[in-house]
Amino acid sequence: MNLKQLEYFIAIAEEHQITAAARRLHISQPPLSYELAKLEKELGCQLVVRGPRSVSLTEAGKVLYDRATHLIAMAHAAEREVASVGTGAGGTITIGVDPGCSGLMPQDRLLDLRRSFPNAEIEIREAATPGIMDLLDGSITDIGVVRTPFKSDGLRCRFAAAEPLVAVMPPDHEVGEEASCTVDDLAGSPIIAYRSLLPELSKAFEVTGSSLRVTTLVDDPRTAALWAREGMGIALIPRSLLRVTDTGEQFIKELACRELESRPAVIWKAQHAASDLFRTAIALLGDLS
């Protein structure tokens, strides 16, 4: 099994069709079909189910797709970093950012990083904290900017202060006091929640015996705020996102619930090979304060 075969397999998995995958790879269909069959023979299992017009992944194929995307990303990251250092470009730093931390990313400090390393390449990858943890574990990202809760085994962490959620409320859905609200106030209201918050949110409502009514579920808290701006419900987002999100004329109220506060953190592998670029990035990011 080699990287070329993995790239071919990824194309097939994402296009759901041998012909479309061959077109994407700029090769003809027969060699692609041959490489797929060869890969299945090497691994000793069927990776795709071939239909009359499309292909679908088997369970083994799904596992391989997940691993292959990480391996290819790591290979490309290594190529870029080696090439940039070899040509004197200054190296590459990849920072994985949870969208819920977007309001805390210190743009002025990233400008300082650019001034210190004018030829370096800075890559930003966005995913929820569990996704960033996977990218960090696979060495696809060098640094993570994430939110609690997460497992810190094998990591170095710099935690910022705890941050509350705020409720972005359209006028038609206003509840609570002038500047704050509680979980009880939100009971029965249409809630727009981002997916990674849902377990903690459900737990908080369960503890108080309040009725949680999630009418819209999104992946990015910034999207939740935008939907609230259009009157679709009450969005619950980290307070710092207000810096980078246009909430329009909605009411903004702090949610008085300690259990739903989270701590942003800068994290990296304890055993990460520290280049000058990496050390400077860590120093400039600090604890996001």
Rank of each mutant, 00 (worst) to 15 (best):
T208P: 05
V244D: 06
R279V: 13
K4T: 15
E206N: 10
T223N: 11
R147G: 05
W268N: 00
A228D: 05
L47T: 13
L197Y: 01
I124K: 03
I140P: 02
R239G: 11
L241M: 07
L71H: 08
S289P: 11
P30F: 05
S262K: 04
V183C: 07
A77C: 06
L64W: 02
S152I: 13
A225V: 01
L255C: 09
F278Y: 06
G100M: 10
T94C: 05
A73W: 04
K62N: 10
V55T: 14
R24C: 12
F159A: 07
A120Q: 05
E230I: 08
D185W: 03
I122K: 01
P31M: 03
E15I: 08
M105S: 07
R243Y: 10
V166M: 00
L36D: 09
L260Y: 06
G138S: 15
E259I: 06
L32G: 04
I252T: 08
Y65N: 10
R263V: 07
M232F: 11
R53Y: 15
T69R: 15
I143R: 04
C45L: 12
A89P: 08
E14V: 08
A179E: 14
E261D: 12
V168R: 00
D137N: 14
F159N: 00
V145S: 04
T223V: 15
Q5A: 15
G231H: 10
L136E: 01
L277V: 02
G90Y: 03
D108V: 10
I18G: 02
L284N: 06
K151P: 11
T216A: 13
D137E: 15
A120D: 02
A273F: 10
V145M: 04
A161M: 11
D220V: 09
V48P: 13
A225T: 07
H26K: 13
V145F: 01
L277M: 01
A224R: 01
L6M: 12
T87W: 09
D137R: 13
P238W: 07
S152F: 05
T182R: 01
V244M: 04
D98G: 01
Y65C: 11
A162E: 12
C45D: 11
I282E: 02
V214G: 01
T69A: 06
D172N: 14
V218A: 04
P130W: 00
G144N: 03
A83G: 12
P99E: 07
I10V: 15
D287V: 06
F159S: 03
V207P: 02
A78V: 09
Y194P: 01
E7D: 11
C101K: 08
L165T: 05
M1N: 09
E35T: 11
D246S: 12
V146Q: 00
S262P: 01
